[in-house]
Design a binder for these strands. Sequence first.
DNA 1: GCCAACGTTGGC
DNA 2: GCCAACGTTGGC
Length: 156
Amino acid sequence: MTRYWLMKSEPEVYSIDDLERDGGTYWNGVRNYQARNFMRDEMKPGDQVLYHHSNADPPGVAGIAEVTRAGYPDPTARDPASDYFDPKAGDDDPRWYMVDIAFRERFPALVSLDALRAASGLEKMLVINRSRLSVQPVTPDEFRIVAELGRASRPG
DNA sequence: GCCAACGTTGGC
DNA sequence: GCCAACGTTGGC
């Protein structure tokens, strides 16, 4: 069963343009248990992802990606040289997980957070109500509505 | 840069 | 196991 997600990235750090250039990437560095659980337990290859720019002006959904590898241990948690190092991660408990994603689509223009708030059918989206969760599920309807808004967008 | 929301830590 | 203190996120 295909599931749908929203994943956030700061464009200053890694934007949809970076993802398009690279073709795909691994989603390391998530250090939140709820987001970790989604990646470890629920995300599967083929799942579709709304790629959201946070800490941006404006913030919003920039395009679509696809999960290409299900959750596996995030090696940066064990790397003392990494910003994401976690001394509590160990051999028998990787503690943090990541997935791989691939670029699929870049919207002509970003679907801003304001546009998401204004759209009918997106009232319950977590990105509106719980903006701090960096990996979050979206319903098939929410995904479809955002994708349609994105594809219909015009560059500003 | 501010600050509200909220997740995590640690003392008790 | 509670909860105050603290750190981080992210919209503005």
